[in-house]
Design a protein around this nucleic acid. Structure first.
Lengths: 134, 134
DNA sequence: TAATACCTTAGTGAATTACTATGTTCACTT
DNA sequence: AAGTGAACATAGTAATTCACTAAGGTATTA
């Protein structure tokens, strides 16, 4: 189907929730799950992956939770999605040893990854732009 | 993995082969398969899909084969890939009823599809550019 | 009518997706 | 010191997709 899967979409939604947390306050999985409607157990795994990629920081125990590992200006949607789904748009293998097509697909990948290189802090801005155009 | 699958890559390779056929001469499946290293049976299915999407024309019987249904200038890589893999980059469902993220993903889809809106006849040109830059 | 090409459908093993289930570890509170 | 509640870790599972193969059907030409 060639699409970002729910895992990536959930990941961006969770990161966006953390970004929107007032005063960068810790958020617990159950809070994020309630906000985003993501299943608690699945969200646990997703946040675990995001932690492994150093995108979030966690604190354990009672009153624990998650927060962004760094400023939202330093986090790209591409980082989030690739942390969860691997590098984007890598053509499986090269076909027929065609140099033309090989470099074509490499170029497509580069351009497509550029599209997703939008900062986490600019997500709302993107929406505003969209909104004002109506 | 979020990538064009081999089906789409094979489809583009096959279409490129048809585009490169001298004088737009009919090409048989076995010729294309030999050129591209795609399995004969699988390529049959792929060309069948491309025909259903009116991207190629076929002639049956002895000396039959395939050719492009229209000028390569009127065929986008996006057309080929979407004929084989469905519409690109549709986020499965909207998550958490977030209007911000919904319109963000819609915008991502639009931009990503634009990246693949390159004409079949410009595939080689893309490579030339890449080549000259070295 | 035989040969040869396209056309169609069914099946299959491997991998991926989107979870659920179960338990462990850690830290704070009482 | 014990209990509670949070993150952490691993295993399992049903459904779907992927990348084909197999087997035959149908149209056209020699």
């Amino acid at each position: 189907m060639v699409s970002i899967s729910t895992k990536g979409i959930y990941g961006v939604a969770a990161m966006h929730a953390l970004y929107k947390s007032p005063n960068a306050k810790l958020m617990q999985i159950k809070e994020i799950a309630a906000m985003t409607q993501i299943s608690h157990g699945y969200l646990e795994q997703i946040l675990s992956s995001l932690k492994k990629s150093s995108l979030v920081i966690s604190i354990r125990g009672v009153n624990g939770g998650y927060k962004l590992a760094r400023d939202a200006q330093e986090i790209l949607v591409l980082d989030i999605v690739e942390a969860l789904e691997g590098k984007l748009f890598v053509p499986s293998e090269n076909v027929g040893a065609s140099v033309v097509l090989d470099s074509f697909w490499a170029d497509m990948q580069e351009q497509a990854r550029k599209v997703f290189s939008i900062k986490l802090c600019d997500l709302d801005k993107a929406y505003q732009t969209f909104f004002y155009e109506i």
